[in-house]
Design a protein around this nucleic acid. Sequence first.
DNA 1: ACCAGCGCAAATGTATACAAAACTGTGAAT
DNA 2: ATTCACAGTTTTGTATACATTTGCGCTGGT
Lengths: 218, 218
Amino acid sequence: MRASETAYRVLRDEILSWRLAPGTPLSEVELAARLGVSRTPLRAALSRLALEGLLDTSRGRTGIVPDVSPESVAELFELREALEVHAARLAARRGDPAVFAGLAAEFARAAEVLAGQGVDAYYEVVADFDRAIDEAIANPAMCGALEGVRTHLVRARRLAGDNPERLLRAAEEHRLICEAIRDRDEALAASAVAVHLRASLNEILATLRSRIPQEGIR
Amino acid sequence: MRASETAYRVLRDEILSWRLAPGTPLSEVELAARLGVSRTPLRAALSRLALEGLLDTSRGRTGIVPDVSPESVAELFELREALEVHAARLAARRGDPAVFAGLAAEFARAAEVLAGQGVDAYYEVVADFDRAIDEAIANPAMCGALEGVRTHLVRARRLAGDNPERLLRAAEEHRLICEAIRDRDEALAASAVAVHLRASLNEILATLRSRIPQEGIR
DNA sequence: ACCAGCGCAAATGTATACAAAACTGTGAAT
DNA sequence: ATTCACAGTTTTGTATACATTTGCGCTGGT
């Protein structure tokens, strides 16, 4: 594994998991020492993070971990809506009905999965769903854009936490989306995605607002 | 100006303007010598181009200028449709009607502009339109995604050339979009964008197919 | 004639030294 | 008290030397 790749993955994981808090400056020399690589590959990792929006280089010379504000989450979800509504349409148009029928069954069993195997097992089903969408639309440009918003979503979701009731409703929303795609109903798939995104956004914003007083936004 | 920034802009311009043809290998040592910078800033420029999709690093170690195939253009336009249809909806929802009324008037004069000042003056109006959309939606995440597709579009457009009849029809389509946004008619704005994109794609694909025999796709 | 194995060469990946630029704190003057 | 200027310090930007990898061609065998 290349040193630049290692540094990138470590830093990306630390940012997405909130081990690196928003506002933390990412100094080249300090990180190079901590990760045991020289500044050259570390710079490559930082510039890659910056281009993906996981590092804010707009203020001053030293990049800082970007803040997660209600505004930034709302903006992310507008982009997410643009991409995922269209992705659902494309999936309904050319996806494999059998695949999405299977996923619909998985989501129908979400209550058992959550109770028996925990939230990680549930999120694995969601990851399967994302992969199925990518495969169905078969468009590298779309998939790349989707990948970007999913990355940022991980960070917001970690902050919002795992509300069991919300996860059950989310599973139901996913089931509806899968069934619409299975039935090749583009309009319904698009609407079902829009419904799901609105509910998700509201959940995250509610959690975010209740936590702001404790966290301290700069 | 930083050397890495200079190298990035030069290479980006050379790729978008087709001075660097698809398939051309971008060797670090060769480019560093040609642009008069060392390999370190040049590498930063290349990695940035690769992340933006203007350099294909998936085949072999040395990156090559990506091909522009009918498939890749069609894929780009699916992403473009996802983003621009939603952007038009957002612009209709919260844009300044006066701004888009003014742009509609500009597009109505497109025939004069094209005849009197040439295609560059017309494309400047389109650039004004893009800026107005960005300002109206006021969403950095959306704007960043739009910027990406516009960049790739430049390359496809250069290939397709400037068909005068098509430009006149495109101006008319833009006028309709602006009027819909001006009237805060989200559904019409979305439809008008979809119409425009389909016509643009068909034009580019037609030109592309007629040129393939001469150009030689690898 | 073709294929496998090997070695060379050219390209990229990394480390480090040096240059330049930008923030910080101090000091004095208004 | 505030602001401006300046120097020092820290941080990033660049160049170059070295390490490592990978692709390619040569040679020998079948």
